[in-house]
Amino acid sequence: MTNKLHQVVLSISALSICALSNPVWAQDLSTQKILPLELSAQAAMAAVKKCHDDGFKVSVAIVDQSGLVKVQLKADGAGPHTLDSSRRKAYTANSLRDSTQKYAMLVAQKPELQGLARMNENILLLGGGFPIKIGGEVVGGIGVGGAPGIQFDEVCASAALKVLKADDTFESK
């Protein structure tokens, strides 16, 4: 009986080695672009500075590809609610792969899409969030909250996208 067990183990080992060394399977492994922490921090600071220079006290959040906070900054004097709004805008832009203002306008125009706003507790369909695209791939999202109008939040978020050298830089509409 041990001789048969030994043969089974050897057969399974041989099949495993063949399967793992098969180049077709290796092609299934994907590579993922990662947003570096230092660059994320520089971008977030650029957004805070832009808003500060324009007279606004905001919070900025940058999330990674999975929607988790990579960097979050709260300017001196920014309201506590701005932390949550910036994080949720960044999450939404990353998750939905487009600007939060675009989705806010879409839901306003098409009431049947209102369910988008309630997909989960992290979604916030309010302008000020953009996906971060590098090399055509969404690698995260940025959200700014606290300026007196989404157009101002968007200008500050665009300053961060420039630091990141993101594929798309958005202009306030």
Score class of each variant (00 low, 15 high):
residue 20 L to F: 11
residue 173 K to T: 02
residue 148 P to Y: 14
residue 136 G to R: 03
residue 98 D to R: 11
residue 155 V to M: 13
residue 110 K to S: 08
residue 33 K to Q: 12
residue 21 S to Y: 11
residue 126 L to E: 09
residue 90 A to M: 08
residue 25 W to C: 10
residue 124 L to M: 15
residue 106 L to V: 01
residue 124 L to Y: 05
residue 66 S to C: 09
residue 38 E to K: 14
residue 158 S to V: 06
residue 129 G to C: 03
residue 160 A to S: 08
residue 88 R to H: 03
residue 51 C to I: 04
residue 127 G to F: 03
residue 156 C to W: 00
residue 172 S to C: 10
residue 78 A to Y: 10
residue 139 V to M: 07
residue 33 K to M: 10
residue 159 A to V: 07
residue 66 S to R: 14
residue 159 A to G: 12
residue 155 V to E: 01
residue 152 F to V: 12
residue 82 T to Y: 04
residue 107 V to F: 02
residue 76 D to E: 12
residue 141 G to Q: 06
residue 111 P to M: 00
residue 91 Y to C: 03
residue 79 G to T: 04
residue 90 A to L: 06
residue 129 G to P: 00
residue 42 Q to A: 01
residue 102 K to F: 12
residue 49 K to A: 02
residue 38 E to S: 10
residue 80 P to K: 03
residue 70 K to G: 08
residue 88 R to W: 01
residue 63 V to P: 05
residue 149 G to W: 15
residue 22 N to I: 01
residue 114 Q to P: 03
residue 33 K to I: 01
residue 41 A to M: 09
residue 99 S to M: 07
residue 134 I to C: 09
residue 110 K to H: 14
residue 138 V to H: 12
residue 24 V to G: 14
residue 165 K to Y: 08
residue 118 R to Q: 15
residue 108 A to G: 11
residue 63 V to D: 06
residue 55 G to W: 02
residue 170 F to R: 09
residue 95 S to L: 10
residue 61 A to L: 04
residue 104 A to G: 09
residue 65 Q to A: 15
residue 66 S to H: 11
residue 130 F to P: 02
residue 62 I to N: 04
residue 141 G to Y: 03
residue 121 E to W: 07
residue 89 K to L: 04
residue 6 H to E: 13
residue 138 V to P: 15
residue 142 I to Y: 06
residue 170 F to G: 00
residue 98 D to C: 02
residue 1 M to V: 08
residue 101 Q to E: 11
residue 159 A to Y: 00
residue 29 L to E: 03
residue 31 T to C: 11
residue 2 T to F: 14
residue 110 K to N: 14
residue 33 K to N: 10
residue 104 A to S: 10
residue 139 V to A: 05
residue 166 A to H: 02
residue 103 Y to V: 00
residue 111 P to Y: 00
residue 13 S to A: 14
residue 154 E to M: 13
residue 29 L to F: 08
residue 70 K to F: 01
residue 135 G to L: 02
residue 108 A to T: 05
residue 133 K to F: 13
residue 93 A to R: 08
residue 168 D to W: 00
residue 121 E to Q: 15
residue 122 N to I: 03
residue 22 N to L: 07
residue 159 A to F: 01
residue 99 S to F: 07
residue 50 K to A: 02
residue 47 A to D: 02
residue 71 V to W: 06
residue 12 I to H: 04
residue 58 V to H: 08
residue 15 L to F: 06
residue 120 N to Q: 13
residue 50 K to V: 08
residue 120 N to T: 01
residue 87 R to D: 08
residue 120 N to S: 07
residue 144 V to I: 11
residue 27 Q to H: 10
residue 3 N to E: 15
residue 68 L to R: 15
residue 133 K to N: 11
residue 65 Q to E: 14
residue 53 D to I: 09
residue 155 V to G: 00
residue 127 G to V: 03
residue 152 F to E: 02
residue 12 I to E: 04
residue 28 D to L: 12
residue 168 D to Q: 07
residue 73 L to T: 00
residue 43 A to L: 03
